[in-house]
Design a protein around this nucleic acid. Sequence first.
DNA 1: GCCACTGTTAGCAT
DNA 2: CATGCTAACAGTGG
Length: 284
Amino acid sequence: MPELPEVETIVRKLAPAVIGRTIAGIELLYRPLVRTGRKALAGLRGRRVLGVRRRGKLLLIECQGGRTLVFHLKMTGQFLFAGETDPRDKHTRLVVRFEDGTNELRFRDVRKFGFLLCLEGEPETASRELAGLGPEPLLVGQDEFARILKARKGRIKSVLLDQRRLAGIGNIYADEMLFDARIHPERPASSLTNTSIARLHDSMNKILTAAIASSGSTLRNYRDAEGNEGRFQDSHKVYDRTGEPCVRCGTPVRMKRIGGRSSHYCPRCQPAPRRRKAPCIPCP
DNA sequence: GCCACTGTTAGCAT
DNA sequence: CATGCTAACAGTGG
């Protein structure tokens, strides 16, 4: 479940709790979690944590000596702190112990989709996963945003979800920002007017900023590193509100599968794109 | 019990 | 290259 606002929330909890601490050991409980750098992982013992940051939906833990742990939480990855003697549940995939021994950091992931890279050197250049990402939605300017959208033939929602175009937007926030900007999720990205693009840029900033301020959305199992739930689900206007009245016009919110993803929208506030007339083949 | 569904995305087909 | 499905996994809810 974690998208940009959830990963950002986790980063903010994790940073003060681990920066400056020295790693005493790492226990890998599910080997396939580590996609690259399993050997480098063992070499983290004795190194200090220098920083924690986010890129798209990835969470980066930067350590002394130019090594970086890169986590993707996919659907069900989560971090928690626990005492070293507290029982571990069966979904715990990795444990980081620290020299101060006050608590340990655990990564658990029910569905096992999450992954970890242990990189040496500049992360942005050391891995495809990072190098291929588009700009940060909260940093991209309106002009570049417009260029990204206008160059795409596909549906606007699919473009928002494409991490090579913009990094960090997932299903929930794509639906919410499209509703806010009154754009139908199936509108071809290249067909958007400058006005619509400007509105969508504003909505993207507004929704993501508000979601971060509310510590993300908890619909099923998302929790931050302290076990807290997010509160932004209370502000969802369309996501997970199928059949409920649109907050703007009262029309029931509709759910439709678009590009394999459940998509929620108001059929009245977000009118369907006009179907193009068939080209006149034997145009005389 | 069975079936449908789930917030991601890599990999493959077109 | 771009775009569109589906599988990978495990649990939950009907």
